[in-house]
Amino acid sequence: MDFLLLVGRWLVDPAHWQGSDGIPTRLVEHIHLSVESVVIGALIALPVGVTLGHYGRFGALAINISNAGRAIPSFGILVIAFQVFGLGDLPIVLALTALAVPPMVTNSYVALREVDPDIRDAARGMGYRELAQVLRVELPLAVPLIMAGIRTSAVQVVATATLAALIAGGGLGRYIVDGLATQDYVKTAAGALLVAVLALATELSLAWVQRLLVPRGIRLLNAPVAARATAFKVA
C-alpha cells in the first residue's frame, strides 16, 4: 500500500503538472499523435472498406488485412520507421497509421456486406441512385460496425503511441520508459496509470460518439456488434 501512496503523491505533485515533461504536455503530445494517426488512417481505410463492401469485391483481402496487421509486431514497426526516417513525429505517425488501417478496413467491409440485400433492393426500387443508396441507406445501417472499427483502431493507436517514447517520441509513454530506464518504478506506475485511463477514456468516449451517430431506428440491432467486430490488439 505504501507504493500506491507514492504513486498517488507523484500524480498530485505540482512539479509534475508543468513544463515540457509535465503531465499536460505529455497528454497533449499523446493525444496529438493518436488523433493525427487515426484520422489519416480513417481517410485511407474507410473509403477502401466501404467501396469493397458495397461491391462485395476482394473480401479475402479486406478480412485478411486484419490478420496480417495482428501478426506484425507494433514495436518492430516503430523501430523500423525510426531507422528509416530518423527522429521526429513522422516515423511515429506513419507507424501508427499503418496499425490503424487494418481493423477499419475489415470492419467497414463487413459492415457494408451485412446490409440486408432486401433493403438494398428496396432502396433501388424507390429510385435511389448508387451513390445516394450508399450514403443514405447503406452507411447509416453500417454505422455501428464501422464505429466499432474506428474504436478498435483508436484504442490500439493510443496503446502503441506509448511505445513511441522508445524511439525518442513524446507522449505519456515517456514516464513508463524513463522510469524503467532509471528503475524509478513509482514514475513508471504513475505513467502506466495515466496511459490506462487514457485508453479507457478513448474507448468510452468513442462508444458515446457511436451512440450519437447510430440512427435511433436501428439501435436494436446494436447488441451483437461486439461479437461481429474484429478483435485487434497489437500493443
Binding site: 522510469g179 506506475a189 496511459v195
Partner: peptide, 9 residues
C-alpha cells in the same frame, strides 16, 4: 483495452 506496457509497468 489497457495497453500491455501499462499493465507490465
Amino acid at each position: 483495452t489497457i495497453p500491455s506496457l501499462a499493465l507490465f509497468a
